[in-house]
């Protein structure tokens, strides 16, 4: 347990990451649909449909208000689902992890590679959404390019949380619990489609204290609006710190699950 398992991580984790990247690129046509189609659908239905009734939020047009949230949601979904359902399939059904740990790779290498890949997928999706949102005129350039580097720690956070659930789930169906009881409520209540500031004070504290997506949306909105405050520094530190914590927990839980 030296250094929480960190000493067992080697360059081999990159080979695990490459395996997932290769599998992703084999079917890239399908994989590239969500980042192009999702923002269009959300913007049309919510931004311009619902937005027609709303006019402005804090002096900002509704499509512009939700644009950074759409990127945040995509970052959350892509890494969380990659590191839950997809990782579980690789671990349990395909026995890919078993094949890997029969080579010089350690369990920690495999899990690190999985989490790095989850974050990469988030970053790819955030990157692909930017031109779409720019064409709709709802984000500004070039400041909005900062959404890309921030997708990395945000993606790592959701990937690590996903692996923790994968490590403790009794079966693939039970992954629906975190998906519906944790991810879906966050999708709706993290300052995504209405500002957190209209919530009661205590709920605001709760959101920034415990909801990963609330912190990610806050940072991304600051990026696209070009308005930074001390709260943003707190949000960034929260995402990195909690991400690191869940990374260590993920290593430990997976080590326990996979050691025989």
């Amino acid at each position: 347990m030296a250094y929480f398992g960190l000493s067992e991580i080697s360059r081999g984790s990159i080979a695990v990451w490459r395996r997932n990247m290769d599998a992703f690129m084999k079917t890239y046509q399908v994989n590239f649909i969500p980042p192009f189609v999702e923002p269009v659908l959300y913007l049309l239905a919510l931004g311009y449909g619902v937005g027609a009734l709303i006019q402005e939020v804090d002096g900002i047009s509704y499509p512009v208000f939700i644009a950074p949230a759409l990127v945040s949601i995509s970052v959350m979904y892509s890494s969380f689902f990659e590191c839950t359902y997809s990782s579980y399939v690789r671990m349990y059904y395909q026995k890919t992890f078993d094949a890997m740990i029969a080579t010089p790779l350690s369990i920690e290498d495999v899990i690190t590679g999985e989490i790095l890949w989850g974050a990469t997928r988030s970053t790819i999706y955030a990157t692909l959404m930017i031109p779409v949102l720019f064409l709709f005129g709802v984000i500004d350039m070039p400041t909005s390019l900062l959404l890309i580097p921030f997708a990395i720690p945000a993606g790592l956070l959701f990937a690590a949380i996903g692996i923790c659930f994968t490590a403790i789930t009794p079966g693939i169906d039970a992954l629906n619990y975190p998906a519906f009881l944790f991810i879906t409520p966050m999708f709706l209540f993290s300052g995504t489609f209405f500002p957190i500031s209209i919530l009661p004070q205590t709920l605001q504290y709760f959101a920034f204290g415990f909801l990963p997506l609330a912190n990610v949306v806050s940072v991304n909105r600051a990026i696209t609006f070009g308005e930074f405050s001390p709260l943003i520094l707190y949000n960034i530190l929260w995402v990195i710190g909690v991400g690191a914590l869940f990374f260590l927990i993920a290593l430990k839980l997976m080590k326990r699950r996979l050691t025989v």
Partner: peptide, 16 residues
């Protein structure tokens, strides 16, 4: 690895 061809199964494994 069901995602890959026979050849890639070998080369991906070699990377490990």
């Amino acid at each position: 690895d069901p995602d890959f061809s026979a050849f890639m199964n070998l080369t991906v494994y070699a990377r490990y």
